[in-house]
Design a protein around this nucleic acid. Sequence first.
RNA 1: GGGCGUAUAGCUCAGUUGGUUAGAGCGCACGCUUCACACGCGUGAGGUCACAGGUUCGAGUCCUGUUACGCCCACCA
Length: 843
Amino acid sequence: MSTVPDKPTLDGLEERWNQVWQDDGVYRFDRTAERPEVYSIDTPPPTASGSLHVGHVFSYTHTDLIARFQRMRGKTVFYPLGWDDNGLPTERRVQNYYGVRCDPSVAYDASWQPPAESGSLKSGHRQVPISRRRFVELCHDLTAQDEVAFEALFLRLGLSVDLTQSYETIGDKARRTAQRAFLRSLARDEAYAVEAPTLWDVDFQTAVAQAELEDRDMPGAYHRLTFHGDPSGGQADVQIETTRPELLPACVALVAHPDDERYQPLFGTTVTTPLFGVRVPVLAHRLAQPDKGSGIAMICTFGDTTDVTWWRELDLPVRTVVGRDGRFLADPPEGVGAPYEELAGKNVKQAQKRVVELLTESGELVGEPRPIQHPVKFYEKGDRPLEIVASRQWYLRNGGRDKALRDALVARGGELTWHPAFMRSRYENWVEGLNGDWLISRQRYFGVAFPLWYRLDTAGEIVFDDPLIPREDELPIDPTSQPPSGFTEDQRGVAGGFVADPDVLDTWATSSLTPQLAGGWEDDPDLFARVFPYDLRPQGHDIIRTWLFSTVVRSHLEHDSVPWTNAALSGWILDPDRKKMSKSKGNVVTPMGMLEQHGSDAVRYWAAGGRLGVDTAFDEGQMKVGRRLAVKLLNASKFALGFPEAPPGPVTEAVDRALLAGLASVVEQATVAFDRYDYARALEVTEVFFWSFCDDYIELVKGRAYSQGPAADSANRALRTTLDVLLRLFAPVLPFATEEVWSWWREGSVHAQPWPTAEPVDGDPDVLRATARVLGEVRKAKSAAKTTQRTPVLRLAVHGPKALLAQAEADLRNAGVVIGELTLTDGEHAVALELGEAPPKPS
RNA sequence: GGGCGUAUAGCUCAGUUGGUUAGAGCGCACGCUUCACACGCGUGAGGUCACAGGUUCGAGUCCUGUUACGCCCACCA
């Protein structure tokens, strides 16, 4: 316990109290607690891609508000901090930061060091090829740096995380967990591999999943092309429209709607493609839209996902022209004509340009291309449109091909309590719209490897049907550097030997296991039993389809359970133009700078005003208000504690009891709101009460509090009781200011105190309300007379609730500086007064 | 095209199950060095609750429709 400072300040509170909290382990999880006493949080591991933005501060504060409330409610809070250091963002950041790229053909060189000037590479600078192993090491190095910065920010913000429960998504533990979960799904036939057309990013050169797609509106053009009818049969030419004329050599058929009378005569016949002279069938399919283009489309392998559907359902051959690097293959598909060689090696854009030139020369392009804007599928992190290439990939069943499973997963969503409730429909929307299983393999380097090898037959061909699978106790394994049991390393890649599965798991295939990772699934069953299923998953609503859904999938498959009982979805930060705050703008205001400028409590106050699910404006004004509140709390506390503590005894005065009755009501409302995860409402009712406490109650009782005797003691007790409760009510939002004040007069940490309870008080809040109203009228009169509030009132006549006001007469007289007659009369609220001379200004 | 959400003061937002004259903060205006606080205090001005119907004694609140904005989803030739 220390004393009340003469000049309280917020400066330096963050560092001081963080140190104490860490030293004392205030937020340490008590792992002797049984499940019912635990409140466990499946925290979002931030992507350690180096960029922190105000959105992190916003949503992580929301989680912390809930964590602190639950802790004060008596729960042992399991609040780990995770790091998502897995995946493409890390790879890309390493490439840009160090100016390198991973080239698996390069030999490992442990002594290779990145250029000294790293981090400031000009665009166009050539990236140095380095070995996969060195590349992965750099990924670890850089994420370690980033994690230091994140941790510093989160502590500064006042998150009550338990740093002893940290986890990551790429270390041995994470790899073991992810590989184990995969192998179990494999054993249950939930995971399977298949060769199929797959959405493919040509820059990252990896397959991507449905959940990672986004549409972007892109310029394009309809090209009208002439397909030639069979001259021997006397058929006319057919015109189709396409936005991708470069895929003409990949054309395998034309398709029109079965009811389309214009094309019915052609069904079953063949036509010849322009330029390349390939005979393709004309077929009917219900997905062809008569009102689109000319009503008849060309099917290519593969221009879009509709092509894939047609190709599959109409049982068509494959003519592949676009390679995995996004360039046209060197050799044309069988039967494709000579002009193809002009396309070989070109990228899609270049090929399109050339094909259009050739079509123009041959006269097979009808009219000018018609420019349009149309949606094009992109990988959400990608820069060029996705292509579709056939490849062998691993999938995890997620209901995309199985109605029963899909229904079961929708039902899991119904088991969750969503905050806000309407977010549930986004989940259902997504699950019900799935059109395929979850593609979990990625052709990348930095990630969790598939724990599999394949045999090579005597001819050296890979036998995919019967993968070599490690035992769980061997995990984690790196199949690219470890041989399967029963083999030796020198059998790698030789006939009769083995090869590793070269792929890594989708980053979501690891992130979807955060409950298992943080809770020590299988590694620490005792811990897992105390935290799983979790109480809360906080996250952004933009990743319902990815993180939230995939976590539900894994938990359903592995544990036959929901992973948590509550899902809290934070909104986004909007810049003042009401747009989602852009990265560039977000980086202008750095989170740390923001915390330093306004103070952590102030920033938390702003965040606490943003209700769950509601997009919220970035508003420095609110931070200033928050800072004002924190400062006010320090000063009001200094006042309340400025008198020697009265001996224990009753609160006798009506105004004081009115205050305590109002306080009890506030406690009840705040508790109800917090229990509903409505921290903003809890803050609001507390704040309104606090300002009235300062502006009305303190002003009213000030004179009495300075005096001596039973009435003074009553005020003293009321002040201290109210302060004690207010500090606890504010503690989740303003952890630093409340802890500071708590330390002036109480033992221990305010954050380890029980949440206040609304004990019944024999008092009438209307006494305070009515009195404050009269006091306001007096102030108004003085303000209108443009005189100081110290100006005495010679006579004051009050109409109002006399019985109530009479109980506060002395305080009213004192606070209003009424030196003459004071009369109270029942009736409509009205005040008449006569002002005296303004006192001389103090020198 | 389908789903979800939002629309209240210049700005940011409250408004619980329909109930007097719609609230707060910021900003603005006018004052006040009042002994907790100038990182302060007081007072005030400011609203056709997006629009049009409907239910009701009574609608910001419920119903229907419309508009605008945002987000999610959709087979994108």
